[in-house]
Amino acid sequence: MFFLATRRYVCLPTPTPEITTTKMAQALGWGEGERINTRGVRPVDPKTGRAKGGNEFSADKPSNCLTGKARTWKRVSDAQRLTVQEAGLLVGFLPLYLWHGSRTSVFQHEADVVPPIIAAAVLSEVLGVPWKPRVRDYNDQLYRLGEFLDPYADDFDTVA
């Protein structure tokens, strides 16, 4: 939900197939089959045989919503924690975006931020400019598999 002031009626955009959906593993350059542990070793519920309170999810689909607690997420295969840069990438920031503060505060900032892609869609509706070509271009370049973007390149405005 957004509260925006404008002098005209605005219909906020709905998701469309024109904007590609990227799986978490793809976005982070991980192989298929990765699982994310969100809460460490949890007691097992004897009735279900599963960890209590949720514990793991597959990285082979879009990421779960980030919260400040995402700082504790680990890959099951090698126990590597999700990095600040990886979490930033999941919410739509360039890999070398400079976050400031402690690990805890940075993850909270990343969880609270309005992602650039959402901000572009909402603001462009208010301003009356097309957003889909730019967002599609940004999204496609942001999540290019196996590549790191040049943080100084200004190539996200090539479609408009």
Rank of each mutant, 00 (worst) to 15 (best):
V129S: 13
G49P: 00
P95D: 06
S58V: 02
I118Y: 09
A59M: 07
E110F: 05
L98F: 04
D157E: 11
I117Y: 00
V135L: 01
V135S: 01
V44H: 04
A70V: 02
D45F: 14
A121F: 05
P133D: 15
S58T: 13
S105F: 06
G101A: 12
H109M: 13
E56Q: 15
G29L: 08
P17N: 15
V41D: 13
D155R: 07
T14G: 10
W131F: 14
G68R: 06
G31A: 13
Q80D: 13
V129I: 15
D137T: 03
W99I: 12
Y9W: 11
V114S: 15
R136D: 12
I36H: 02
F2K: 13
A70I: 01
E110C: 09
P95M: 07
L145T: 14
V76L: 05
E18L: 13
C65S: 14
A153C: 09
L94C: 08
Y9S: 12
P115W: 03
S105P: 01
I117W: 05
L89F: 04
D60G: 05
V113M: 03
L28I: 15
P116T: 09
P17H: 15
I36A: 08
V126M: 11
K69G: 07
A5G: 00
D112R: 15
V106P: 03
N64T: 08
K61S: 11
G54I: 02
T22E: 06
V122R: 01
V129W: 13
V10T: 06
P151W: 06
P133G: 12
T6I: 09
T38D: 04
